[in-house]
């Protein structure tokens, strides 16, 4: 009983509000890149992924590798709302002794499938999980959520080759294609276009979707699951800072600190 699109959109709004509250409390962190991947996470955790929050280490669960690890607040909000831990824990994000470290730490947080931090490293981890699953004849799937700036890292392309060469079809890479990175627009700093064609020539199955359309995302993940013999990449076209007008497409909101006033304004936009 998958949630309806309306319900998924409601979940996404709740997560966006959680992200902002966490960032205000923490006094640091990454708003733009967290907000841009919220709909993707909502569809993954509420529709696509086979998980059991009561058994976070269940062997047959689907996995998520948050390669764009700076979007940790979005993932923590999703895990809390999905029932992995108390929602009140979210307020401890980035604080001393918190379960919720600035970048995901699987030794501290239930529901984190891989500790990550440095961009560009997640896809290799996903491949490794997939290779191990294949040996154990398990059919769980591994989702790897990446930023587009991350696709500039060389390791991303090493991993892309590995996955295709070994016909790893239980990995689904998702690229949060917001056209932004830390210092500005990806195409002005180190252009990625034509991104879909790059993955195609690396022998991946490529699906391009609107990364804020929960129905399109659901369909894309379904298509990825039924694509055999090669890995799938979902290129999700998104807006950095999505949902908060003064943050949308503004590079400074990559890691700017929220003030009380701006927080109130943002929450009003997400009412």
């Amino acid at each position: 009983m998958s949630p309806t699109p309306v319900e998924l959109r409601e979940v996404a709004t709740v997560l966006r509000r959680d992200v902002l509250t966490m960032l205000l409390e923490a006094g640091s962190g990454h708003p733009g890149g967290s907000l841009s991947c919220v709909d993707i996470l909502a569809v993954l955790y509420w529709h696509a992924m086979k998980v059991n929050p009561e058994r976070p280490t269940w062997e047959d669960r689907d996995r998520l590798v948050l390669s764009k690890a700076h979007a940790a607040p979005a993932l923590y909000a999703a895990l809390a709302r999905r029932g992995y831990f108390d929602v009140r824990e979210l307020l401890t994000f980035r604080k001393l002794k918190s379960k919720l470290q600035g970048f995901p730490d699987m030794q501290k947080t239930p529901g984190i499938d891989a500790s990550v931090g440095s961009p560009g490293q997640g896809l290799s981890i996903a491949n490794g999980l997939a290779i191990a699953a294949r040996r154990d004849r398990k059919n769980f799937r591994i989702y790897c959520l990446m930023g587009d700036g991350e696709a500039q890292e060389g390791q991303t392309w090493e991993a892309a080759m590995t996955a295709a060469h070994h016909g790893i079809d239980n990995v689904c890479a998702v690229i949060d294609r917001n056209h932004m990175m830390g210092d500005g627009n990806t195409e002005e700093i180190a252009s990625l276009a034509p991104l879909g064609d790059k993955w195609k020539t690396f022998n991946w199955h490529v699906i391009s979707v609107d990364g804020h359309d929960v129905e399109a995302l659901s369909a894309a993940f379904n298509e990825a699951s039924s694509t055999k013999g090669k890995p799938t990449v979902v290129i999700a076209k998104t807006v950095k800072g999505k949902g908060v007008p003064f943050m949308e497409n503004r590079p400074e909101w990559h890691d700017r600190k929220l003030t009380e006033d701006l927080y109130e304004e943002a929450m009003r936009a997400l009412a």
Partner: peptide
């Protein structure tokens, strides 16, 4: 000095 970002950074 990366403070809140934590151990990985």
């Amino acid at each position: 000095s990366a403070g809140g970002a934590g151990g990985s950074r």
